[in-house]
Computed example of a mutant assay.
Amino acid sequence: MQIIKTIESLYKRIQSFKKEQKKIGLVPTMGNLHEGHIKLILLAKKHSDIVIVSIFVNPMQFDNALDLTKYPQTFLEDCLILKKEKIDILFAPDRSEIYPNSTKMHTYIDVPKLSKIIEGKSRPGHFLGVTTIIGKLFNLIQPNFSFFGEKDYQQLLIIKTLVKELNYPIKIISIPTIRLKNGLAFSSRNKYLNNLEFQKASFLYKIIKKTINIVVKNHGKKLHETIHLSKMSLIKKGFLIDIFNVYNSQTLDVFSKKNKKNIILASVWLGKTRLIDNKKFILPN
């Protein structure tokens, strides 16, 4: 595994891969790697000749300065994981390499509609930072494939839209959310949870599944009542709810019984930790 920290060195390696007609797979991360990241790396190996993992804690996508400061950074441990997985290149630039000037004055990429609803409404500017850094990584690495998890479902749709509308010759490949045995989705932010919160956190996915069962059984009728009862169950367990609702899984428009492909998106607080999760479902005829 080669660790590259500068854009200049990265360019040289990418050009050599292109001359050799190697297929490049990119797994973008912010580090603090877990089982979900490893699954993406294994998938990248199946599709690519060269696997590149990026680690960059992107300040542009944090809507809260404190959240950026406390975000878990485990670079040495991450390097050990990546060496074990035998990736080809770790691109780990310093912040000054990616943003030589202020992030506030930096050129950005915006996906207007999808970036300003649901999670984007709760975290203004978050997706602007995501699409900007992903666009930069795509320009720098020129991958044939890029790999993402479905836990950040809105982010996944935004990146797919970015690729389509800006004509990037890149195939986006996603995998279902990787979970612990109790159903809790793997996340770098799980480390913020204390022992009691960690035990409670799995209740979120249980409620999501229960809600879907009721919505499907009722063919979408009494949706507001069902969602309200699910929220009450979460609140009784100690969750503070930001987002918990049913959306069109293809457009993220609000639920309509005319649409059969749907998803529950959830963003909640448990103590000082923000958890997100989702599950797709088909509404029967």
Rank of each mutant, 00 (worst) to 15 (best):
235 I>F: 10
112 P>K: 09
275 L>M: 04
246 V>F: 10
142 Q>L: 12
95 R>I: 14
280 K>R: 15
151 K>Y: 05
124 P>F: 06
281 F>G: 04
256 S>F: 09
31 G>C: 08
203 F>N: 09
12 K>C: 10
111 V>L: 01
160 K>C: 10
210 K>Q: 13
1 M>D: 00
250 Q>G: 09
62 F>H: 14
160 K>A: 12
107 T>A: 15
147 F>Q: 04
181 K>C: 04
83 K>D: 15
243 I>Y: 03
162 L>V: 04
211 T>C: 08
6 T>F: 07
97 E>D: 02
5 K>C: 11
272 K>R: 14
49 D>L: 14
222 K>Q: 15
243 I>Q: 06
219 H>I: 13
154 Q>N: 06
91 F>D: 04
71 Y>N: 02
37 H>G: 08
224 H>N: 12
125 G>H: 04
188 S>E: 09
185 A>R: 07
194 N>H: 11
225 E>V: 08
96 S>K: 15
87 I>C: 05
140 L>P: 02
113 K>Y: 13
274 R>I: 02
210 K>H: 11
180 L>H: 11
225 E>H: 11
209 K>A: 00
184 L>T: 12
141 I>Q: 05
41 I>N: 01
268 V>C: 08
266 A>K: 04
87 I>S: 01
278 N>V: 06
225 E>K: 13
230 S>D: 12
22 K>Q: 03
31 G>K: 09
102 S>N: 13
2 Q>A: 13
190 N>V: 00
205 Y>Q: 13
200 K>S: 14
147 F>H: 00
249 S>M: 06
23 K>D: 01
200 K>D: 11
130 V>P: 05
51 V>C: 07
121 K>D: 01
209 K>N: 05
247 Y>L: 11
226 T>R: 00
98 I>M: 15
208 I>V: 13
92 A>Y: 10
31 G>W: 03
201 A>V: 02
277 D>Y: 04
173 I>E: 07
233 S>Q: 13
177 T>N: 03
84 K>W: 08
273 T>M: 03
79 C>M: 12
252 L>P: 02
90 L>C: 08
208 I>D: 05
11 Y>T: 10
141 I>R: 00
265 L>P: 04
260 K>C: 05
133 I>F: 10
213 N>V: 09
44 A>E: 04
